[in-house]
Design a protein around this nucleic acid. Sequence first.
DNA 1: ATGAAACTGTTCTACAGTTGAACTATATTT
DNA 2: AAATATAGTTCAACTGTAGAACAGTTTCAT
Lengths: 151, 151
Amino acid sequence: MEDEVQHWINRYMDAYMMVTRQVAARIKDSIAADTTNDQYQILRLIHAQEQCTSTYLAETFCVGKSSITAIINRLVQAGIIERTRDENDRRQVYLSMSEHGKRVFEAAESQVHEVVAPYLFHFEKKDIETFIMMFEKLASLIQNDNGGKSQ
Amino acid sequence: MEDEVQHWINRYMDAYMMVTRQVAARIKDSIAADTTNDQYQILRLIHAQEQCTSTYLAETFCVGKSSITAIINRLVQAGIIERTRDENDRRQVYLSMSEHGKRVFEAAESQVHEVVAPYLFHFEKKDIETFIMMFEKLASLIQNDNGGKSQ
DNA sequence: ATGAAACTGTTCTACAGTTGAACTATATTT
DNA sequence: AAATATAGTTCAACTGTAGAACAGTTTCAT
């Protein structure tokens, strides 16, 4: 039983590292050279969020807020992201994509899809569903498990 | 059909990012502060490989060889890794763990297992097998797809 | 109403990781 | 022997990360 768990974890880590690294490398080669993978992930989060703040990004991305400031500074400098202060609570700064930013994001997105899509055709529809659902269940388990280490 | 693929990719990316980031953050909090996640991944590769070279690590990790040099330099400086030149082909340098390195690696490994294992108990044995097998299939698809971009 | 506490985000310094070009040393090819 | 290929390193420039100190804003307790 214990051995089985160990074995699963090792297999998972092996496959996981391979997939993660290779997919990241392929996406990097594919999307415009001046946008990094992390920047693309940040753009995805901003795109999906109505009023996106640094705090939200820091929590979702699991990094400190100063990392977000650094990334956003570069994206602002590249004319991709714009900052807007909330007039009701002037502490908050909302992050949104400029028109140029939207074009950059959409181009990157379609490149990513071109990289990933071909692999899907090697799998049964049913298996893809199962795979994604397990991934989503895992994501929600992890998400609802903040702070409390045990269990 | 196209829409379905798009939808899958988006769901996959969402779940994937969440799991990747959260697990990485938890592992980082868990393993000794002076070993990074990337260093742990490198140690796993060295541990699994009989005679490990920089070139092998660079290819497997999908980075340039100079990145590997930088990582290995830090691990050598920390007394975790040792370099040994091949006497038959003096260009080659084999990387191996020192005794201290082995202890560091085993400690990190057991920490990682402690972080990951609890999540497994939320899943059916059968589903875990399916999940890992799909991951492994994906890994091997990607691996056997070097160079040729299309398909 | 005012002062303490909490919150949002930035700046700064130090470091890990990445890249790509230039380089050293060794081995192979012709 | 000279040209070429291979394995690895060095260097400079950059992205990403952490954590502490900080500034500005809001909330809360008394």
